[in-house]
Structures are given as structure tokens and as C-alpha cells.
Amino acid sequence: MSGDNYDIRDDRFAGLIHKNAGLDTLWTGGRWTEGPAYLAAGRYLVWSDIPNDRIMRWDEMNGAIATFEQPCRNHNGHCVDGLGRLVACEHRGRCVSRYEVDGSKTVLADSFNGKRFNSPNDVVVKSDGSVWFTDPSYGIDSDYEGDAAPMEQDGRHVYRIGLDGHISRVIDDLKQPNGLAFTPEEDFLYVSDTGRTHFPGCAPKIRRYPVGPNGTVVGEGEDFVFCDSGLFDGFRVDTSGNIWSSAGDGVHCFAPDGTLLGKIPIDEVVANLCFGGPKRNRLFICATTSIRAIYVRARGATL
């Protein structure tokens, strides 16, 4: 069953949407919007406009748009940690940083084994406070989204920053690791691979990795779902374990068993999304040049 706002592939999707809820356009004017994060205490959304080297801000209370920071070192992904602090992936800074409660910035990680990261892309904070992030090469491939530079690492990998600041490489079997999210119980870590941009034989997919009992390492991964339109970039998981992912034709929703439940069609390529609002039931969507939003019958497991 299809409609103007939804493409329902499985009856379970009907229970995750409001059929009368339309897609709102909150803002337009970006070049490549990315990295949405909802700051619950202030009731506002921030996102990256990477080529324009700026972070934008939308106020939920009055709809006002403002520039949060410019220049911003070509930020990409963001998330909010358990203390409400904004954690950021910087392309040009080639690091993961954090905005402290007093407004200062702390660099959490900028190198591994004495070599600079490629360009940290997306980030998630586990409930124990550890920070997990992906490090593909997009920010150093050209001057459009960062600074063109040679790769110092031996590939494109996924890393973990412990509470003690120790950095470890946790995944090294991906071509271009991109979005990532834990299941609600944090027993699995999902990571998307957008390697097709550089390696034509790399199928666009999300892989699933079991998290070790101590929560610091992951086991051998497996291909979980594949994309039938464009690439999976950023994504989030709701409290029931469903995956809401960006794709070339909108937002795709997958059940915890990997079934494609349905899609929210959008007329631009979607790069990333997050849950927000006071009830965490509004999906904020970065759609190339614009920010869209839609209410769903699901709550984000994290912001």
C-alpha cells in the first residue's frame, strides 16, 4: 500500500506512522545537510551544512533559524551525550570534539597510533559514556567538505574512546564506515558502509556486530540489510529496535529482524536523521539542501 507520505511494505509499518501526519519543511538553503542532533534542554535542533562550513540551529519554540557556528571546521555528524553535551565529528579538524557546559570545546580524539584520523564522520555515545565513531575519507578526498590531504591511517575504520581517553580500533572490515547506532540493549552495533562511492563492487549495506560482554569490543560482523535506492548513510534506532535509515529516495524503516517495513518518500537524497521533540517521537531529516520533520509512532532510543 502506498500513499503520498508513506510507502508501506509490511503491516507493522502502519503501527509506526500517523497516516495523516505530513512532512514539514523546516528550512532550506543548504548544500549538503548532515549531522542532526536534538538538544532536549533547550528544545532546539542543530545540524551541519558541510560544504558551507557552518552549523545551523532551529528553535522548536518559535521556528527561528540561526547560524550556530561558522566557520566550524566542516562538522559532519553530531550526537548528544548523557550529560546533554554536544559531541561532534570534524572533517577539517580531523577529530572528535565535545562542547562543554561552559561553552568551551574539548578535543576527545584526533589521532590513532601517532597518525591523524581521516575525517571522523558520525558518532554515538554508549550508555557507559564511551564514544564510538566512524572514520571514512570523505573529508580529505577534496576541498569541498574539508581539506584535501593524504590518508595517514591504513584504511577507514571504526574507533572507540574510553572514559579514560584510551582510543581503540574496534572495526576494520568496512570500505567506508559511515552511520552507526547501538540496539536499545546495546548488545549489537550497526554500521553502514558507503564504500560504493570509492569501490564499485561494495554493496550499500548496514552491517551488524555483536558487542562483547565487557562492552568495549565487538565480534565478527555480518551483513544485515541492503539498500535498494542509493546508499545508507546516517540512521537511528527506536526503543523497539527498528532502524530508521537515510537512503537515496527518503527514509527506510527496518524491523529488528531485517524486514523492510516501509519508506517515507522524500524528493531529495537523505543523508541523516535523528529523533527529537519532548517525546522523542519526531523524526528530523537532513535531505540534501533542506531539513524536514515528521511525527511517527515511535520514540528514539537515543537523541
Rank of each mutant, 00 (worst) to 15 (best):
I171S: 04
Y209C: 09
A37M: 04
G42F: 05
S2W: 06
K279I: 05
L86G: 02
V107H: 06
T259D: 11
C79H: 03
A149F: 07
A40S: 14
G248T: 07
S142G: 10
M56L: 14
L283C: 08
H252Q: 13
T216I: 11
D49E: 10
P136A: 04
D49N: 10
N272K: 10
Y295P: 06
R196A: 13
T216G: 11
T25F: 03
V170W: 09
L163V: 12
G165S: 12
R94P: 02
D110T: 01
L231Y: 11
I294Y: 00
H18N: 12
F68N: 01
E100R: 15
F182K: 03
V218T: 13
D53M: 08
N178D: 13
P51E: 04
D143R: 08
I243Y: 01
P184R: 07
P210A: 06
F226A: 13
H157L: 10
I285H: 00
L303S: 12
C89E: 07
A181C: 10
L283G: 02
F117D: 01
H91M: 08
V170I: 15
D81W: 08
Q153D: 04
C286H: 02
V125G: 01
A181T: 02
E69C: 11
L45V: 07
L16M: 14
A247N: 14
N20W: 03
A203N: 09
K205C: 15
W32E: 07
R43W: 01
I264E: 00
G35R: 05
L86A: 07
Y209I: 09
V131S: 03
P204H: 06
I55Q: 08
G262E: 05
R282Q: 11
R207I: 05
T288L: 14
P278K: 11
R73C: 10
I140W: 01
G234T: 01
A37E: 03
R54G: 07
R196G: 06
V218E: 03
D267L: 08
N74L: 03
H252N: 12
L83D: 14
C274V: 08
G165C: 06
D24N: 13
N118C: 10
S119C: 06
G114Q: 06
G3P: 00
S104T: 15
I17K: 04
P177C: 09
R57P: 02
L39M: 13
R9V: 10
N281H: 11
R73Y: 06
D228S: 13
D249E: 13
S104I: 06
E220L: 12
D147Y: 07
S290W: 02
R282K: 14
W58A: 00
R280W: 02
L26C: 09
I17S: 05
R280F: 09
I140R: 00
R207H: 11
W58K: 01
W58G: 00
T289K: 15
N178Q: 10
V123W: 00
A40E: 14
R12P: 03
S137P: 12
R169G: 08
G221W: 04
N281A: 12
P150M: 08
G84K: 11
M151P: 00
P71N: 11
